[in-house]
Design a protein around this nucleic acid. Structure first.
Lengths: 229, 229
DNA sequence: CAACATCATTGATCTAACGCAACGGACATC
DNA sequence: GATGTCCGTTGCGTTAGATCAATGATGTTG
């Protein structure tokens, strides 16, 4: 396997302060890895051997209960990190939602490199703080929102996230997730997700095109639905 | 107001690597502040002017929807930080659950000090990563657990958290929260929390002593309840 | 200690979401 | 283009938890 150059490109935002020499050193630590859709590369509770940087694709972080109920606790996109720096065990499973490419670092080496590069750690800290805010916002949704609010919020958020950085939310796009996965994110059943989506379609707020396609017909009404039942 | 010495004691774990001179400098940045039970010192969406370190007491982090529904997204204890370093606005409200003492830093000064002390930032990063893991564990509870599981898990966790570091969970203790606050943490109504508690009492798993007191009579059964309906 | 306020408990009803089952369309394989 | 599989959709009965309302404790104030 070759040193992880595309990761360094991806991670550029992370280490733009590093010197060329250091960046090269960082790149040599990592190894490219392809992860096909559906493959799980970390299990909850397992020792976390690696830290990885997402180069392309999307992956879900999830935890589950014995009987199969699953909750997706996060979704990571290119340039995000997965794994648990400085930690013993990884508290959730990581599974590819689409074919993904990663840049994988042995955890020990990554930890040491980070420790000796304060700027890298600073950027990691900022990202982690952002991620924590996002997780807590999500908790409001899980704990207190109706099914309608959950689904509306989800559609709105995806529209925003799929748009180019700083752009207006998309009005027509493909959902990156299956109905079941949406249900696992929102803490609902697949049937409830379906019913809410078709109800929103009947109300003229959105249109559903095929399995994955969504068009937002009335953004204001969608916004309303995201806030009140 | 005097420089924040007790904060430096509290924060010792955070900056044990700092020199005496630096520690003194850090202490001078902060100011002691008493926060009585129920007082809110940050509102969601408001500009985050300060970062603070909890010296004593407990505070809740919460977000809410227009109509009054509230979700507690975190509880902070002594030595934890509140506020949003490096951020513009604070995404949730912070309210004292009990009389609390804080050490408050102007955000700008704190950010600068942190930036120039990598060890401090490293420790902040580790804490934030821990907090993120905790938040995500909580999400599983909110999204996929039954009322019974939620309440049982809550009791078990409090018993663990109130025990001295590294000690066995307590079997008899006072809940630090009212029924309503427990409901806001678990995404339930106050009535449901009550009913689950009395059901657990009738089942001989716990005993309820007065408003706040709890005795765990059968830890194994409690553990079972925390996992399956 | 009486009066009040607050918090906790319990009962009775209602409803949003669940669970099950049937059906239908999309896509892959031969 | 027939066959099978997977995924999404819809209908219908059930249920966990919400909601409404009344009653009981506990603690506080004058």
């Amino acid at each position: 396997m070759s040193a992880c150059n595309s990761c360094v490109v991806r991670t550029q935002a992370m280490c733009s302060i590093l010197s060329d020499r250091e960046r090269e050193e960082f790149a040599r630590l990592g190894r490219q890895m392809a992860v096909p859709t559906g493959q799980t590369l970390m299990w909850e509770g397992a020792d976390s051997m690696v830290v990885a940087n997402v180069v392309s694709g999307a992956l879900k972080l999830s935890t589950s209960v014995q009987d199969g109920r699953e909750q997706i606790v996060g979704v990571v996109y290119p340039s995000d990190f997965i794994g648990r720096p400085f930690g013993k065990t990884s508290p959730h499973s990581v599974t590819a939602l689409s074919d993904a490419r990663l840049c994988v670092f042995p955890r020990g080496a990554f930890d040491m490199f980070a420790r000796s590069h304060p700027d890298l750690e600073h950027r990691l800290l900022r990202r982690t703080l952002d991620e924590l805010d996002r997780a807590r916002g999500w908790m409001l949704l899980l704990g207190r929102a109706s099914a309608r609010e959950k689904v509306a919020t989800f559609i709105r958020d995806v529209a925003g996230r799929l748009a180019a950085e700083g752009d207006a939310p998309l009005t027509r796009f493909d959902l990156p997730l299956s109905r079941q996965q949406i249900a696992d994110i929102l803490g609902l059943t697949i049937e409830t997700v379906c019913r809410q989506l078709t109800a929103m379609k009947r109300a003229g707020v959105i249109d559903l095109i095929g399995r994955r396609g969504v068009a937002i017909l009335n953004p204001d009404q969608l916004e309303d639905m995201a806030h009140a039942a």
